[in-house]
């Protein structure tokens, strides 16, 4: 058991099947700068959440609940959480 403060890093990305105009615009800008090797860009959000929890698993479960209810839109976005320490 390691009760205490955890940091959860949450990555929210637009679903792969949906148009991501922000990623496309960044892709075009990179190509214009000469980065012709860039095959694709997708742009999402990165959130860092400090949370109190009894265990690492509980911290992860809390973060998933936050994503399901607020941080990600289930219609348009997917998310991944990683807990530290």
């Amino acid at each position: 058991m390691s009760a205490g403060a955890y940091t959860v890093e949450i990555r929210v990305m637009p679903r792969a099947s949906l148009l991501d105009p922000q990623g496309q615009a960044v892709h075009h800008a990179l190509q214009a700068l000469g980065f012709g090797d860039v095959a694709g860009v997708r742009a999402g959000k990165h959130l860092v959440v400090q949370v109190q929890a009894a265990t690492r698993e509980e911290a992860a479960a809390k973060a998933r609940s936050m994503c399901d209810r607020l941080l990600a839109n289930p219609v348009t976005e997917d998310y991944e959480c990683s807990v530290s320490p």
Binding site: P14, L18, L19, P21, Q22, A25, N73, V75, T76
Partner: peptide
């Protein structure tokens, strides 16, 4: 849902 306009 409503997402960013296609041409931003």
């Amino acid at each position: 849902a409503l997402m960013r306009n296609a041409r931003l």
